[in-house]
């Protein structure tokens, strides 16, 4: 039985089978390459390529970002320095302005005082003069009042004449 089994199944090499095997297997290789392996391998390669490009781009982007950060830091530093400078300048100019205003105010005050003093002096002078004339008038009045009581109109006439004469003498 064993002999029959082996003998029947092995059956020797049949030329027909060789041809069928060769033809179908070769066809299978080409068909699979065209319709299955080709597209599959292409997709895998595409992905590989894609990943590689993406990685490269990411690297580039990172370098760019680093540079941008550096630049930003520099700018920030610069801005900070500028701001500091501005504040210092402002303080300085404020101090100058303060001093200016103060000295101006002082000067103005001084001038105003001077003016006031001057005015006061003039006024006093005027007042003094006015008072002098008024006092003279009053004194004259008083004197007149005193004199009127004792001098008669004739005497007064004479006195005035005398005065007028004197005046005429003085004038000539």
């Amino acid at each position: 039985m064993q002999h029959v089994v082996i003998g029947a199944a092995v059956g020797g090499l049949h030329i027909g089978n060789i041809i069928v095997t060769l033809v179908s297997f070769t066809a299978l290789i080409f068909l699979l390459k065209r319709f299955a392996w080709g597209p599959l391998i292409n997709v895998m390669e595409e992905r590989e390529h894609f990943v590689a490009t993406e990685l490269e781009t990411a690297q580039e982007k990172r370098v760019e970002a680093d540079q941008a950060i550096k630049e930003a830091d520099q700018k920030l530093d610069h801005a900070r320095k500028e701001a500091k400078q501005i504040v210092i300048d402002a303080k300085k100019s404020a101090t100058t302005l303060e001093e200016n205003i103060l000295s101006e105010a002082r000067e103005t005050a001084k001038k105003m005082r001077q003016d006031a003093e001057d005015e006061m002096a003039v006024e006093r002078q005027e007042v003094l003069q006015e008072m002098q004339s008024e006092v003279a008038d009053i004194a004259f009045q008083i004197a007149m009042d005193i004199i009127q009581k004792e001098i008669s109109p004739e005497d007064q006439k004479r006195l005035i004449q005398e005065r007028l004469d004197h005046l005429g003498e003085d004038n000539s």
Binding site: H14, I15, G16, N17, V20, T21, S24
Partner: peptide, 12 residues
Amino acid sequence: LSIDLSSAMMMV
């Protein structure tokens, strides 16, 4: 030209 039909069929 001889052929084992079962092998040939199974191959295909």
